[in-house]
Amino acid sequence: MKTRLLRPCFVCVLVIVLGPLARAAEWKTFKDCRYLPNAANDGDSFHVRANGKEYIFRLYFVDAPETDGTIPERLAEQAKYFRVGVPETLQIGREAERFTRQKLARPFTARTCLQDARGRSRLPRYFAFVEAHNADLSESLVANGLARVYGAASDPPEMDKAAVQWRKLQQFERKAQEQKVGGWGIGFGRLNMRSATQPGPSSDSFDSFFNRKPASAGAAAPSAGGKLNVNTASMDALQNIPGLGRVLAKRIVNARPYKTADDLRRVKGVGAKTYEKLRPYFE
């Protein structure tokens, strides 16, 4: 990358600052964005024109390798991650830049709350989610072995399932490693190969991360066969319940064991109304 992250301290910033300082910020949706050629662009950070204004966007959750050797310590760190030499890491970075440029050749959508990503350009750099061809760009880079899962499993403002997305990216990374594609296959001549496991298209991938609507009083409960065991349900399964986010799911797990699901009433944050909405989802 040519607009750089500050290494150790930036990870701390992601963990500590990402949520609290930006929660007051409003998410903006920029449609029909245009990729702007720039010497500083790379796989995960690039110049964009949106609504007649130039921005630099930095993708959440991922880190594509460097495209030059101006920061040797960071390049060495990335080489270690991909288990290759520095020259090969530079090749991966350049392929990631080419991949992103091709993905963004047509108009695309970006979502940002203008959260500072600490670039070194004259323009401020902001974190963003970018959707191209009905798929999340971060997922596409990781799935094809062209970026690592990186930063911290921290919560962008209002994102109720950051940990779930983090694990999803790790699954894409494992598949890329197994299939030896992108950086994971550079030693086998497979840098330009694409994974058989691509992020699935959706009507709006951003909505899979955000804005989950709470269940209404009349929402249908799951069938008996699909109900959860309150003592064994995973965090993922709990967070799939409409209106139940990561914090409350963690409280439910930490309060185990329960005699019956009726004991959910004793979990902090589960008041009478919340209990009425949650109870039908459990045995």
Rank of each mutant, 00 (worst) to 15 (best):
K2N: 15
K2T: 07
T3V: 06
F10D: 05
V11F: 11
C12P: 00
V15Q: 13
V17W: 10
A25P: 01
T29H: 08
F30H: 11
K31D: 15
R34D: 14
P37N: 07
A39W: 05
N41V: 06
S45Q: 06
S45A: 11
A50M: 09
N51D: 15
K53H: 08
K53D: 10
E54Q: 08
Y55D: 01
Y60V: 07
F61S: 12
V62Y: 08
V62A: 10
V62Q: 05
A64V: 12
T67N: 02
I71N: 14
P72R: 08
R74Y: 13
K80N: 09
F82T: 02
R83K: 15
R83Y: 07
G85D: 15
P87G: 05
T89A: 10
T89V: 04
Q91I: 00
I92G: 03
I92C: 08
I92V: 11
G93Q: 03
R94S: 09
R94D: 02
E97N: 10
R98H: 09
T100I: 08
T100A: 05
L104K: 03
P107A: 07
F108E: 01
F108Q: 03
A110L: 04
A110W: 01
Q115S: 08
R122C: 12
P124H: 13
F127W: 01
A132C: 10
S138W: 07
S140Y: 06
A143R: 04
N144F: 13
G145A: 12
G145Y: 04
V149R: 00
P156R: 06
P157W: 01
M159C: 05
K161R: 12
K161Q: 13
A162S: 12
W166Q: 02
K168N: 12
K168W: 10
L169V: 12
Q170D: 08
Q170S: 11
Q170C: 09
F172L: 06
E173A: 10
K175A: 12
A176I: 01
Q177P: 02
E178Y: 05
G183V: 04
G183W: 11
G185A: 14
I186Q: 00
M193E: 04
M193S: 06
S195N: 06
S195C: 05
Q198Y: 07
G200K: 02
P201N: 00
S202F: 01
S202L: 07
D204T: 11
F206S: 03
F206N: 05
D207A: 10
S208P: 02
F210C: 07
R212L: 06
K213V: 11
S216A: 14
A217H: 11
G218N: 15
G218V: 12
A219D: 15
A221F: 13
A221T: 01
A221S: 14
S223P: 14
A224S: 14
G226N: 15
K227F: 12
L228W: 11
N231C: 09
A237S: 13
I241G: 14
G243F: 09
G245E: 15
G245I: 12
V247L: 15
L248R: 14
Y258H: 05
K259D: 13
D262N: 12
D262S: 05
D263W: 00
D263K: 01
R266M: 03
K268D: 08
K277C: 08
P280Y: 07
E283R: 14
